[in-house]
Amino acid sequence: MKHTISVLVENHFGVLNHVSGLFSARGFNIDSLAVGETEDPTVSRMTIVATGDDRIVEQILKQLNKLIDVITVEDVTGDDMIDRELMLLKVSADQATRNDVMQVVNTFRAKVLNVSPDTLTLEVTGSESKVDAMLELLRPFGIRETVRTGVIALSRNRELKMPPSGIAAEGPVRKSASKKTASSSRKKAVSKAD
């Protein structure tokens, strides 16, 4: 099953190497990985889509959590979440087919970015399945090139909160600052085991 994992990491040198290296070293497959700065410039958010059974995903979460630069990890798959992917694609479209292509574009509320005599360059945003569906409908016209960002996701209700940054005098702070999420994910693991 596909899992969407949201990870907050320190925004500095070598972090991506640690995360991607972990996946290859442990033989976990990444379907997609998107990363960018958050509202706090010292922190990046990675959205990782990975496929595996519960046991593999449990290991992925634990191993990610072990990485020193990882601040918070959550499997947001079951959450009520908003997930989006952006795709740019160049599709063949000459005079004979352009109208048909435009129909698909309109249905998916995609944007035309560039028109040439025999191609259209399009932008579409949506859930992964929407993007897939549009790609399938355009395939018969001839796909020249595509590029996709990978999924990014935010939970509607849950926020991955950050521990305070900087040097704190009182000693170590819990890995996942949001008490509720930490204990509920622990509970999940326990109830599974008990």
């Binding site: 020193i68 601040i71 950050m162 305070p164 040097i167 704190a168 170590p172 702070v173 890995k175």
Partner: peptide, 8 residues
Amino acid sequence: NVHIRSYN
């Protein structure tokens, strides 16, 4: 003091 927010 040493404190690493991402390490517990």
